[in-house]
Design a protein around this nucleic acid. Structure first.
Lengths: 231, 231
DNA sequence: TATTAAGTATGATTTAAATCAGTTTTAATA
DNA sequence: TATTAAAACTGATTTAAATCATACTTAATA
């Protein structure tokens, strides 16, 4: 029997903005003329669900939290690192407003691309449009994976996923300064902050990770991976 | 304060295949030549996650269950009625295989569109591509809504969502023959079949619905809606 | 530096929903 | 029509994780 698919709660989609490579020199210049760069400090709001969307964004540097809320509860859809597109759902003329909110986990630089210009390029350059379709599809595959985990894995597995995601996809090393609070981790793995604390403690007791202040080091990657898979 | 967004666990995205309207007569003919019609009986497999995807599909009639699984657990991503596209994620050349499985809840007719032909049209006709982008975005907004509900609403609300979804989006009336088993309903609302049974019983006792054999009638729509909203 | 406020930590209690074990009903097949 | 199998149902028990209450630490601000 072939190896089964392993879903992960990590939702850093590997979708660098390759679509822009599809643009001609002239189109690239046109895009640049319709782009502005904005810097955000940690914790600032990048876009707010429900507000008018005048631009598509790409994250130049930093780490962004993307979430939806209904006024009572909120759900973190994903965290996205540099190189990702943001607010793409607003290319659809029916969604004149942002479908989700975004804030910065850490200091972040975002390029705002005029939405009219972006749409113009879509309608002119099929290769560009095709590439955007590919990105959207990759995003949806990733979201489904996370969806699966949040509904089926239990807490230990979900938390392991986030830690592995940070190591593998965000920092690309096994030791890093954790930029997220316990509450942030709780939101990402849909559980309470208290539960996160208890489970981190357990991970430490079991010698899976070592924490010193903001420093987090994965000492038993394989076992953490196994917890992610089994649970 | 403006009215907050109401998320719903229903995931019938109102995305008729409007993209095909963007095609010229000639392109439409080209598409027809590359399309075959397949009939499925209730419970048959329409596509299987992991197998090679040679076509994009559109549901002509029936009701389809779309789900992913890792060999142990499965998650129903959505049910889709006639008029929806299916397997769209495979337009991405990186996903040569289906990213999910699909089976028919009831007798279903599906059009299989040759994927090479579909991609050709995407690369030739930007209006078509733009329209596909819009559909993908609508799908992702819908998935996020359901994602929110499955992680935040509790069981009563999630089951109410499915019943309302069937009434509002599938059958478009408040009385219908329920084509889904208790287990199907359980999968759709991510809970156990036993819990579904208990909750349907409660709904009946509370005079929200009436059930007679396969017949289901919503007698207090507003109260059911409120349960859906309050969770 | 004192004061306040977040954030982290821990223990006790509650709770929603799963699981387990069994019965009844309905549908499918020999 | 008898036999088997699959759904539907019910009650008892367990369990994972939330919630509540409270203390301790670190960071932010007056």
């Amino acid at each position: 029997m072939a190896k089964e698919i392993q879903y992960s709660g990590c939702t850093i989609s590997e979708d660098p903005c390759i679509c822009f490579e599809q643009l001609s020199k002239k189109e690239q210049k046109f895009l640049d003329e319709n782009t502005v760069k904005i810097k955000y400090k940690k914790g600032e709001i990048i876009c707010k669900q429900g507000s008018y969307a005048s631009h598509i964004m790409s994250v130049e540097s930093g780490l962004v939290k993307v979430y939806i809320d209904d006024g009572i509860n909120s759900l973190v859809l994903k965290m996205i690192p540099e190189g990702s597109l943001l607010g793409l759902s607003s290319v659809n003329e029916e969604y004149t407003t942002f479908q989700y909110s975004a804030t910065s986990y850490i200091d972040t630089v975002v390029n705002q691309i005029n939405i009219v210009a972006f749409r113009k390029l879509l309608n002119k350059n099929p290769g560009f449009a095709k590439s955007v379709i590919d990105i959207l599809n990759a995003k949806s595959v990733q979201i489904n994976s996370r969806f699966f985990c949040l509904t089926h894995k239990q807490s230990y597995g979900r938390l392991a996923d986030i830690i592995l995601c940070l190591a593998d996809r965000v920092f690309k090393k096994r030791e890093f300064d954790l930029p997220l609070s316990r509450k942030d981790l709780a939101e990402l793995s849909t559980m309470s902050a208290e539960t996160v604390i208890r489970m981190l403690k357990k991970f430490k007791e079991d010698d899976l990770i070592v924490m010193d202040g903001k420093k987090l080091k994965i000492v038993d990657y394989d076992r953490l991976k196994r917890i992610s898979e089994t649970g």
